[in-house]
Simulated assay, not measured.
Amino acid sequence: MEEYYKEIYENNPGLSARDGNRILCVTTVVMIGIQFLMVFLGVYDTLPLVLGTQLSVLIIPIVGAFISEADMRETFRIRPVGIKTVVFAFAIILCSYPIVALLNLISMFFVENAVVETAAGLYQHGFLTSMLVMALCPAIGEEFLMRGVVYRSYRKKSPVLAWILSAVIFGLLHMNFNQMPYAIYLGLIMVLMMEASDSIVTPMLMHFFMNGIATLSGFFSKGVVEDMSGAAYNAESVLGSGDGVGIALVSIGNLAVIMIPLVILIIKATFRVNGRKFSDAFKKDAPAYQRYALPEVDEIENILDPWLVIAILVMVVITAINTFM
Rank of each mutant, 00 (worst) to 15 (best):
F177S: 06
Q290N: 06
F219S: 01
V116S: 10
F271P: 01
I93N: 00
N302W: 05
M228R: 11
P80F: 04
H207Q: 10
N21E: 09
I300V: 12
V224K: 13
L173S: 14
F177I: 10
F324M: 10
R272N: 13
L249M: 15
I247P: 10
I99G: 02
I99T: 08
V29G: 00
A293Q: 08
V81Q: 01
L55D: 00
V111A: 03
L47T: 07
F109C: 10
G121D: 04
R18D: 04
R291C: 11
Y4E: 10
G42S: 14
A196T: 02
I252Q: 07
E7K: 15
Q124E: 15
F88H: 07
I92L: 00
F90L: 10
E143L: 07
S279Q: 08
S56G: 15
F282H: 03
A248I: 09
L186E: 05
L249C: 12
G141V: 05
G148A: 10
A235L: 04
N322R: 11
G275E: 07
L304C: 12
V39N: 13
M325N: 13
I32S: 01
H174V: 15
G171E: 02
L24R: 08
I93L: 09
P138V: 12
S251V: 11
S229H: 10
I267W: 08
G242W: 09
V100Q: 03
M190F: 13
D298K: 02
V43L: 11
F90N: 04
V297P: 01
L249K: 11
A269V: 08
Y151I: 07
V309G: 08
L239F: 08
P295D: 02
Q35G: 15
V39Y: 11
P287A: 05
V150T: 06
G275R: 03
E143P: 13
